[in-house]
Design a protein around this nucleic acid. Sequence first.
DNA 1: TTATATCGGACTAATTAAGTCGTATATATG
DNA 2: CATATATACGACTTAATTAGTCCGATATAA
Lengths: 138, 138
Amino acid sequence: MLKIAKSVEYAILAVKYIHENSHKGSISTKEISNELNIPFDLLAKILQKLMKEQIIQSKQGTRGGYSMKSKLSEVSITKLIEALDQKIQLTDCMVQNPSASDCGRFDTCCLRGPLGQIQDKINLLFSNTTMEEIIQSN
Amino acid sequence: MLKIAKSVEYAILAVKYIHENSHKGSISTKEISNELNIPFDLLAKILQKLMKEQIIQSKQGTRGGYSMKSKLSEVSITKLIEALDQKIQLTDCMVQNPSASDCGRFDTCCLRGPLGQIQDKINLLFSNTTMEEIIQSN
DNA sequence: TTATATCGGACTAATTAAGTCGTATATATG
DNA sequence: CATATATACGACTTAATTAGTCCGATATAA
């Protein structure tokens, strides 16, 4: 219960790897995949999404690969989560403007209030944790 | 991502219902199932687990059903989660004594530290929220 | 021109979560 | 004491989600 997506885990590990090997220039998906034991195709999709959000930048073609674009201190876990089209959502009815189609018992739902508060706090935990802190803590 | 189990949702709703209808005596699974639109068999299993943990008590046979056993203020969401054999676990490697079989990259895993801290705080959020507060907030 | 990369969508497999079924046991009531 | 109505509990099936794979296209250094 309350698992974060594997793609988010992989993204954290990959960003760390790219940062720590930045002296080498562009780092290929293949290298990261091999070093971190992350399925190549899956990792490729993840890196492409991080690139679209300008967290990393890419260079195509031979000797291509990825390098950091954003500063580590600006890359929160929340930023990674959003880049990967994921979201923190404790229940089906915890959406922006919930309607009866989201919540089986919309009118009498006693969960949105208290769980909403918890969810907000969880969101803060992730948005206040940056890649800089994660890398320093090792 | 980060969804709580439906069984936990149902448990919260059911405990609320049992409490609010305590004047009627024992409340049957059938009544709760009908009123809250929760699948009967699933709800039955949930209530049995809550009973084993003494959150509610049961009376078998005709006119049987469930009534509250614990005080609302003593029933935290964490208590419900545990009664339902669920647990808060952000990643596969966030277990008590992680080994290489839990964590694909055990030695170099940079997630257990920072995510562990977040997980601890999430645990607190759930253990500090009781059914009393949930019911009052409506 | 070729080998090596990223790009990006469609598809499949695996895992987990949700829900169902069957049978046994308990008990109030006519 | 028979019957209807409940809980008890394990096994099983189905649905949903998540993870992982495949394929063809484009870009580019050597």
